[in-house]
Design a protein around this nucleic acid. Structure first.
Lengths: 227, 227
DNA sequence: ATGGATCCACCTATGGATCCCT
DNA sequence: AGGGATCCATAGGTGGATCCAT
């Protein structure tokens, strides 16, 4: 039943079947499937797991600003978990728009669209487990509950208020219950164009939206069960 | 007096002095100065000459949308010439804006700004001369005459009229006395975003503005004299 | 713990132009 | 001859995320 790997699924059901076929496989098995070498550490290959799984599950969007499974409207997210199945890291959502973002509503927002339907793929990430042996868990197809959606919207509106008024000094990762904004760049010297408090062009660090583990933890709950 | 090479000039005079120091040098001498290898042919290094001279003369703009010598407002252009000193090729000016270009005037246009002051550096390009032996000629600092400027403006307005009305089928390289529009892309399958006749988003080939040899020929005149 | 910093891949846009078929 | 096609380099943006110092 591995014959569907690398093929774009036509239905949610097909996608979930492929997830089931992958659940329990180790990183070594995934790199072998993709005919690539497993590096010694993820430090210089941070995106590896996500890219392997996109390829194996037949994601199509590449790096377009679209859901990974364009036809199904589903976004794929791997999430590193500890021995108890709890997220070890926050989850990157998308770039924060720093220009012309005034007048965009939560409904239209990139964050809401990206998170409207997500396939979460947990992966063992405890440092005690050798990279090669870390396994993929069962995929969880999720859409925000009404309450989660409301909190995300509140966070987004509070954060975008600061962006739209150019208050970059007040913009820290401490703001937001589920959603936070953090730097997203090659390094801390990287700058991009933005608009300051006076509405004039300025430079500031590129930033991204991230989900706190508080949210992803509750999404995963005790769902991380290896078969 | 080669000590000024690679340093950004502070005045037109300094720039021209450096040009004089380079005039008559062969491509081999230039690649040696820059400590790079001269390839067998330019086919896979089409931009080499221009990049060598930018480096040697201390151009600063990189690939920003700015004049090469930002402080002096001067654009550097190498131009391949035949045995008689006549241009063998048209000269690329800049990308044609395909979006939001309505309402831009000739005065504000990228073409006018790029061409407002140009340092022309002729280089021998007759196929009979081995690449290694081809020499740089004397630099010519040029601004459009009133008449040249008028013709460029007419061409630009005629061409931009077609762009602004999305008439890409009618847009051929035959239009324009001094200025023409031609494809500018990795290959003919490359597409970029534009606006069609109805004002709706569409895809079309990326294009660039080029100067016909009729204009560059008259700029160079008999000025290509090796020292 | 977690906020701030960092790391790779890929793609597009721009800048540097010349190639080559009809 | 010249209109259409092609070729390389570099920077920045987006997508994939994890690292690490305090």
């Amino acid at each position: 039943m591995n014959s569907n790997f690398f093929q774009t699924p036509n239905t949610e059901q097909q996608l979930l079947q492929n997830c089931t076929a992958i659940a329990g496989q180790s990183l070594t098995e995934l790199t072998t499937l993709c005919k690539v070498e497993l590096p010694q550490e993820l430090k210089f290959s941070k995106g590896l797991t996500g890219q392997l799984l996109e390829k194996i599950l037949g994601a199509t969007a590449g790096n377009a600003a679209e859901p990974d499974f364009q036809n199904l409207g589903i976004e794929l997210k791997t999430i590193p978990v500890d021995i108890n199945g709890k997220p070890r890291e926050t989850t990157y959502v998308c770039t924060v728009p720093l220009l012309n973002s005034n007048g965009v509503s939560w409904q239209q927002s990139w964050v809401r669209r990206k998170l409207s339907r997500v396939l979460w793929l947990p992966i063992e990430a405890d440092p005690q487990i050798p990279l090669a042996k870390r396994r993929i868990g069962m995929g969880i197809l999720w859409s925000p509950t009404e309450m989660q959606s409301q909190i995300l919207q509140q966070d987004w509106e509070e954060l975008m208020q600061l962006i739209n008024t150019g208050q970059f000094e007040h913009l820290t990762a401490k703001i937001g219950t589920y959603l936070q904004i953090r730097p997203k760049a090659a390094n801390s010297k990287t700058l991009t164009h933005a608009t300051n408090e006076l509405g004039a062009p300025c430079l500031t660090a590129p930033r991204g939206f991230y989900l706190r583990t508080q949210l992803t933890s509750s999404i995963l709950q005790q769902a991380f069960v290896l078969p």
